[in-house]
Structures are given as C-alpha cells and as structure tokens.
Amino acid sequence: MAKYLMLKHYTMAPEYMQYTPMDQWTPAEVDAHMKFMNDFVDRLKDAGECVDSQALSPEGTFVRFDGEGKPPVTDGPFPETKDLIAGWMAIDVDSYERALELAGELSAAPGAGGEPIREWLELRPFMGETSTTTE
C-alpha cells in the first residue's frame, strides 16, 4: 500500500483552471457537485482507501520567528498569492495506477452545465517509512 495526497487548489495559473466559478453555476449544478464530492469520499471509505479528507479556508496568515523573546511576525493574507490550497484527500492505495485512476475520477466532478470540471489535481506520494527489508 502507498499513500498519496490529492491536492485541490483555489487558484492556479489560468491554463490549469478554466472552469466557471461556482457562484456562477445554477443552484442545482452546485448541489450536484456537492453530492458528487460527498459520494466520492463515501466510496473511498467503503473501499478502505480513505485516509483523510479536509477543506481549507482560502484566507490564511503568514507567520515567522522574529527573534528570542519577541512575538512571531505575521503578515497576509495575500490575496494575490497565485496558488492557494483549497483542500486535500489523502488516500492509501495498492498502486500508483490506482491513485491516478482516483484522481481522474475526482477531476470529473460535475460543474456548470453538468460538464466535468476537468480540474487539475496535484498527486503527491507520501514519504514512506524505511522498510525493514531494505538492507
């Protein structure tokens, strides 16, 4: 088994994100999309492949250390940031091929006009544990 992160993005370069924003869909299209997402997670759970599924708020804060005894410096939110993470699903699957297959299905979530949104998802393998049989 291998774990993968499927990252969803709020904003990406335009060539990766061409679909109409959700508030411009009809309410029925919004409902269909929500239902697809919920059903997708349910199917992952049923298949024993779901590790985690989380959504993030678009606005965050940048924070860094600013020296001993001083409070950390904060900045942001940066609305101009090009790439924001909207959320993720972590899956535990038998193979890379299976991970690709699932990411493909998720990217086919229905959008405006019921058409698949064809959103680009970023598939990232987790770093695994050192296997005891490596030596």
């Binding site: 959700m22 508030d23 869909w25 009809t26 309410p27 299209e29 919004v30 409902d31 929500m34």
Partner: peptide, 13 residues
C-alpha cells in the same frame, strides 16, 4: 460555505 455558495448561485442565475 456550501449554503452560501448556493445562495450566491441562486441570485446569479
């Protein structure tokens, strides 16, 4: 969030 998106979609459509 979903409820508010739906409200925006309702008014826009």
């Amino acid at each position: 969030r979903d409820h508010l998106v739906r409200q925006a979609a309702r008014l826009n459509s």
